[in-house]
């Protein structure tokens, strides 16, 4: 099966590109990025604030059992409906720091569309921290699951 989401992360560069073709009209793809209640559903995080306009800002927060497990925020630099969003993104309490994101939305056909996200980090090392994170998270989740099972056996 061909992979729908592609990541280009060239060796030694401080940026990466994420591309994805959607089985959705351009209008709906953009709307999913514009409206807080829709973004919330697919990002899997609570949207505390999302001002979808030039010079607007946003904040996301995810809690688990009453503890904040994820917080992110950023500022929107450019907002052109159904074309482009330029924004900063910063995951709080991580060493990744702030990143600059260029999101480009394109129509392929009346019912399909493409998103290209260029993400620029402060350095190659900052990009590496980001790339490692989901992997380490996966391993940690497996560990936690095991610990839970093991402690329930005691």
């Amino acid at each position: 099966m061909e992979q729908k989401t592609k990541i280009i992360a060239e060796e030694g560069k401080q940026e990466l590109t994420i591309t994805r073709e959607f089985d959705l009209p351009l209008k709906l793809l953009f709307k999913a990025h514009q409206e807080p209640e829709l973004l919330e559903q697919w990002m899997g995080t609570k949207v505390l604030k999302l001002e979808s306009k030039k010079h607007g800002s946003y904040a996301f927060e995810t809690t688990h059992n009453g503890n904040v497990v994820f917080r992110a925020n950023g500022t929107i630099h450019e907002f052109i409906p159904e074309q482009k969003i330029i924004r900063t993104f910063e995951m709080e309490n991580t060493k990744i720091g702030v990143q600059l994101e260029f999101l480009e939305f394109e129509k392929i056909t009346d019912s399909t569309s493409r998103l290209t996200m260029q993400v620029i980090y402060r350095s190659v090392e900052h990009r590496a921290i980001q790339l490692k994170m989901p992997f380490e998270y996966g391993i940690n989740m497996a560990h936690n699951k095991l610990q839970e099972i093991l402690s329930s056996l005691k």
């Binding site: 989401t5 990541i7 994805r20 990002m43 899997g44 998270y137």
Partner: peptide
């Protein structure tokens, strides 16, 4: 894993 994370998100979208 990073790609997978985005892929899951976009499938959800």
């Amino acid at each position: 894993p990073f790609r997978k994370m985005w892929d899951d998100r976009f499938n959800k979208l």
